[in-house]
């Protein structure tokens, strides 16, 4: 399990990295934390001819709130740092909650949020969290920059809207309104494994405890992270009573399209979608109050 040979570049600026990617296109892969790419290379499932290592390009690791209150996370911010970052924990506590389920500390010490999202594994927790938070991604290339909403970014298993010359440079998370509760829950075989089913839930209540806005997204639930817009819509206007949550959970079960794995049959995954969605919604509601 040794990687095939490759040409290695470690540019010292984002611009140089973009130039290399533009020059090599699909023959080149960006190397971020390497926690998904390097195993794939060790198995020789991935054999990129060129690696553009982003670890020496400054400016990609910032975590900060912008003037509008949105949280901006540089693509190379390590997951362990995001997990501990006071700003991120304050503005979007679901990040730390979900990151805690991403593999193990040794992996999160190295792995980056940008790398995780660009890898676009539908079993991964963070793409679903991005859908639930309404994230927007800043994609950069020599041609310029564009912002893509999370729901348009994930196109299929390991497939994204990134062009061959583009880099996912920054993740932008809009601020959560007051009385918003979030929760990420999953059922995995073991701590740190990809979930058999995971659900990110975001609910906003008005002063009367009525749900004004909800978002639900699931991982390991289909070819991409799967939003459950019908379930979310059904909750809006409700008081998130048990019957409302049960109704939404039933819709989530219909909205997911699990593919099954060696660990879980699609039927069991679909069942779990309802179970986990209900639990996540209860938790989000409690946190919103």
């Amino acid at each position: 399990m040794k990687p095939a040979p490759f040409e290695w570049h470690a540019p010292d600026s984002v611009e140089a990295a973009l130039a290399l990617k533009a020059a090599h296109g699909d023959d080149a892969r960006f190397l971020a934390g390497g926690q998904s790419l390097v195993p794939a290379m060790n198995f020789r499932i991935a054999q990129p001819a060129v690696l553009v290592d982003l670890n020496r390009a400054p400016g990609l690791g910032t975590i900060a709130q912008d003037a509008e209150g949105a949280l901006r996370i540089g693509a190379m911010a390590r997951n362990a740092r995001i997990e501990r970052d006071a700003t991120a924990r304050g503005s979007h506590p679901i990040l730390a909650e979900a990151l805690h389920e991403v593999a193990h500390p040794q992996i999160r010490n190295r792995g980056t949020l940008g790398g995780n999202l660009a890898h676009a594994d539908p079993a991964s927790e963070m793409p679903a969290v991005m859908l639930a938070l309404g994230a927007r991604f800043l994609l950069r290339s020599l041609r310029g920059a564009r912002e893509v909403p999370a729901e348009e970014f994930f196109l299929g298993p390991l497939a994204t809207a990134l062009g061959p010359d583009e880099m996912l440079a920054e993740i932008r998370l809009p601020p959560l309104p007051p009385r918003t509760g979030t929760a990420f829950l999953e059922v995995a075989r073991r701590r740190g494994d990809y979930a058999m089913m995971g659900v990110a839930a975001v609910v906003t209540l008005d002063a009367d405890g009525r749900c004004t806005h909800a978002r639900i997204a699931c991982c390991s639930a289909g070819p991409t992270p799967m939003a459950a817009p019908l379930a979310a819509a059904a909750l809006e206007g409700s008081r998130l009573e048990e019957a409302d949550i049960a109704g939404a959970a039933a819709l989530v079960r219909q909205e997911v399209d699990p593919m099954g794995s060696v660990h879980a049959s699609p039927a069991y995954q679909r069942h779990l979608a309802g179970v986990v969605a209900a639990r996540a919604l209860r938790l989000a509601k409690a946190r919103a109050a």
């Binding site: 470690a10 190397l31 390497g34 060790n42 290592d53 670890n55 193990h104 992996i107 010490n109 190295r110």
Partner: peptide, 21 residues
Amino acid sequence: GACTIRLDGAPVRSCLMFAVQ
């Protein structure tokens, strides 16, 4: 986790990094 080392103090998998990094 058998190959875990500390890189600038943080535990990481040494099998998931290239030496040049």
